[in-house]
Design a protein around this nucleic acid. Structure first.
Length: 808
RNA sequence: GGUCCAGUGGUGGAACUGGUAUACACGCAGCACUUAAAAUGCUGUGCCCAAAAGGUAUGUGGGUUCGAUUCCCACCUGGACCACCA
């Protein structure tokens, strides 16, 4: 009888008592750091999807330990941020209290799954001893000028009452609550991530063990665009419009200029604009259109001409009209573009609508493609471009930019889609930003020895909506003295965003109790970098970009010893509900792991989740599937109850093949086929067992099978291991090896094809020659039949696999 | 619109560098055990054909090859990310 409840309880207690998973630096062993993305503990607890990644890394960690590595495999909690705070507001509890409850609940749920985490190294981003160092890093960034105050308009969520970073939006809506985002100018702390854009982009090439899809998403997000700026003087004034373009070669086709409606130049030119009331009305009308609608590509473009204004093309001194239009964004490039309707789709659409001039300057094979019908946007050969005629687009760009630079009328320029990181939130539940505002000394850092700057207790966590966080109401906290001049001063009341703590947590696991430094340099050298990192793909453009940014900064100031934090990265595919939808309370399709563990056991659940399908792929939960995994484990337990061993050569060979396959499959995270390989072996053994009363395998071999199963089903295998009179844990034993000689089959099934179609299969010696195979094949009735009256043109022989006879 | 990924039985999926398509598991059907059911065991299970033989099948159409789920081209469908980024 398989009493999973008793077995799992027994071993979990035993592992804890014997400190089996405690990790320390050990110079005699190679290190391996395998990391899960730590969870955000919500009140709802885990569903069966959450542990999928944790199970896989646990299997990997256990194999690595048995292979003789010193393995760091920690876990912690990322608990600052809106969900915890909103939960606290709704239930009128201090977030500190509710987070502690959620963490305890999560931990309990994780523990019954039998993970091999070293809990001594647990971190929690909301723990002052942790966020002391988050604040410390922020101060270092501030010292280096990477954190600055800005009053630019930013994304504002009217429901969450806080500013948000671009990364926090989904389809132009708040990722948390789905509200329409407004653009609101307000005082913000911003991190200059764009200073690192080039490195964040280029260093992706140094990460061969990251999935290509994730790297591609990051490249998309960074959005590097190489072009140039050019200055158009405004006729009759000292004003200048600077435009950004990637197609300088088309500048002779520029028939008008477009400014973003918010471009400051528009206000500067107010006196010269003869239709100002119309212009002003247009600008006002745009304020009522949500950002998402305005920037939608499907929307018809609108705009207004700035009457009385002409811009001068620096190349031919031609005067062109100037428009403001909604399709030019003030937040990208210079907020101004030169319009070349013949060679840009957006400009073409706008020019058609308003009947503006269209001038072609790029040809291909001496023809002008789609003239008058659509914009031709490819590179080609220039014409109507004075001395640049006959040049290719590429050459022309180089020469034109060089000319601009010589004449100080423009320069080469690289733009990024990536924006600087809006880093302050007007909410309570986050790390306080450790800065002080003094009238005399301006902004002053909280002295290092005063860190952590603790989050004060507060009556109400409700956001104020005024652009100030609830901290602003606590006068005894806000009012302080300036550390520099000793005069009266006020604390910064904004807090850091949810993503701050997760930017560096993997470094803290290495040395989580160190109060004197972020991490001990010796320990950092031993454990860094993270060898293998596993988590959801939804973090590809947020956490993983932010963390790489902070890590590079920490590298620059000498804290981190490697330029990249994560060597190998894999993403875990979601587990959907049985109805194929995302598991959610709304659909009522959430499966609770506690129930599965209670009914079928942690080991069965672990085996099933790995068996479901490819690790990276999303798949639907099927409760019946757990039964299959459970049956497999029952079969293995049954074997262990037989004490009569009788080795069988075929099984030995199959076992060695299985060891090889399972080892390689775990290495590559092909855990579904690893499980199926072990099932095949168990089925074969069971077949023999039905015939004889002895187990057709030697005791040593049986124990090797138990060992490769151990990472998947740690409790059951530990129990079997003990029953076989082993004193130490199975996880302290060595990972089995295989013998290539035993894997080689003596006989094989040779496939006989005629014209590529299967006609027979012969059991022959594995090393049979082509000639021997042929003479054997042609006497088979089923082959003879097909060869009658036919001429054999060719014989294809693949040693050990097949013989294909080609006839005419 | 751009970039990337994927389409294989009733279902989840397997097939290593082109070489027996459908491993493994679920489900289903039949049989055994049982008064009966559950559990368990055995057998079968892509489609056409009574069976054998054979034919046919990996989204659709074409190509390369002795041989294609795998490589190439076009198309269809679905998903992920980005998107008026100049």
């Amino acid at each position: 009888m398989y009493n999973h409840q008793a077995i799992e309880k027994k071993w979990q207690a035993h592992w804890q008592k014997t400190n089996l998973y405690l990790t320390e630096e050990d110079k005699n062993k190679p290190k391996y750091y395998i990391l899960d993305m730590f969870p955000y503990p919500s009140g709802a607890g885990l569903h069966v999807g959450h542990p999928k990644g944790y199970i896989a890394t646990d299997i990997f960690a256990r194999m690595r330990r048995m292979q003789g590595y010193n393995v760091l495999h920690p876990m912690g909690f990322d608990a600052f941020g809106l969900p915890a705070e909103n939960y606290a507001i709704k239930n009128k509890v201090n977030p500190k209290v509710s987070v502690a409850e959620s963490v305890a609940h999560f931990k309990e749920q994780l523990e019954i799954l039998g993970f091999s985490y070293d809990w001594e190294r647990e971190v929690n981003t909301t723990d002052p001893s942790y966020y002391k160092w988050t604040q410390w890093i922020f101060l270092k960034m501030w010292e280096k000028g990477l954190a600055f105050e800005s009053n630019e308009p930013i994304n504002w969520c009217p429901s969450c009452k806080t500013g948000l970073a671009n990364e926090d939006l989904e389809d132009g809506k708040c990722e948390r609550c789905g509200s329409e985002i407004e653009q609101k100018p307000m005082r913000q702390w911003v991190l200059k991530i764009t200073d690192y854009a080039e490195r964040l982009l280029n260093d992706l090439d140094k990460l061969p063990d990251w999935e290509e899809s994730i790297k591609e998403m990051q490249r998309n997000w960074i959005g590097r665009s190489e072009g140039a700026e050019a200055i158009f003087k405004i006729a009759g004034t000292d004003a200048k419009a600077t435009i950004f373009t990637t197609r300088m070669d088309t500048i002779f086709g520029c028939t008008y200029l477009v400014l973003a409606p918010e471009n400051e130049l528009v206000l500067d030119l107010q006196d010269k604009i003869t239709n100002w009331p119309e212009v002003e009305e247009y600008i006002e009308s745009l304020k009522n259109i949500p950002e998402i609608e305005r920037t939608s590509a499907s929307k018809e473009k609108t705009g207004v001409k700035l009457k009385g204004i002409k811009a001068i093309n620096p190349f031919n001194n031609e005067e062109v009209e100037v428009f403001i239009a909604d399709y030019v964004l003030n937040s990208y490039g210079t907020g101004a573009v030169m319009a070349v309707p013949a060679h840009d789709e957006r400009d073409y659409e706008f020019a058609k609508k308003y009947g503006l001039r269209i001038k072609s300057v790029i040809s291909i094979n001496n023809e002008i493609p789609f003239e008058g019908k659509a914009a031709f946007t490819d590179d080609g050969i220039l014409f109507h471009s004075e001395e640049y005629n006959e040049l290719s687009s590429g050459e022309a760009r180089k020469k034109m930019i060089a000319w601009l630079e010589i004449n100080k009328l423009g320069a080469k320029k690289i733009n990024y889609r990536l924006k600087d990181w809006v880093f302050s939130r007007q909410r309570y539940w986050g790390e306080p930003i450790p800065l002080i505002h003094c009238n005399k000394c301006k902004v002053v850092a909280v002295p290092e020895e005063e860190l952590p700057l603790k989050l004060p207790e507060v009556e109400s966590y409700e956001p104020t909506g005024t652009g100030e966080s609830p901290l602003a109401d606590i006068s005894e906290w806000v009012n302080t003295t300036c550390p520099k001049c000793g005069g009266a001063a006020k604390r910064e009341t904004n807090t850091m965003p949810q993503w701050a703590g997760s930017c560096w947590y993997y470094l803290r696991y290495i040395d989580n109790k160190n109060d004197n430094s972020l991490v001990d340099p010796k320990k950092e050298k031993y454990w860094s970098p993270v060898d293998f990192y596993v988590g959801g793909a939804e973090h590809a453009t947020r956490h993983l970009i932010y963390a790489r940014f902070w890590h590079k900064f920490l590298y620059d100031i000498g804290i981190a010893s490697h330029e990249e934090p994560f060597i190998k990265l894999k993403h875990v595919g979601l587990i959907m509900g049985e109805d194929g939808r995302k598991m959610s309370k709304r659909w009522g399709n959430v499966v609770n792991p506690d129930e599965v563990v209670h009914k079928s056991g942690a080991d069965a659940m672990r085996v099933y989740e790995m068996f479901m399908g490819p690790f990276e792929q999303a798949c639907s939960w099927n409760t019946n599937g757990v039964i299959g995994a459970r049956k497999f484990l029952e079969k293995v337990l049954l074997f262990s109850e037989i004490s009569n061993y009788q080795e069988d050569k075929k099984i030995t060979s199959l076992l060695h093949k299985t060891i090889k396959k399972v080892t390689a499959d775990i290495e590559d995270f092909r855990l579904n086929t690893a499980v199926s390989a072990m099932m095949i072996l168990a089925n074969e053994v069971a077949d023999y067992k039905a015939k004889e009363s002895a187990l057709p395998i030697s005791k040593d071999n049986f124990l090797n099978f138990i060992k490769i199963l151990a990472p998947f089903a740690p409790h059951l295998t530990e129990e079997i291991w003990e029953k076989q009179e082993n004193k130490n844990s199975i996880f302290l034993s060595a990972w089995p090896t295989w013998d290539e000689v035993l894997i080689k089959d003596e006989t094989i099934n040779l496939i006989i094809q005629v014209n590529g179609k299967l006609r027979a299969s012969l059991e022959v010696a594995a090393d049979i020659s082509a000639e021997a195979a042929y003479s054997l094949a042609i006497i088979q009735d089923n082959v003879k039949k097909w060869l009658e009256d036919k001429e054999v043109v060719k014989k294809i022989f693949v040693s050990g696999k097949l013989l294909n006879i080609v006839i005419k």
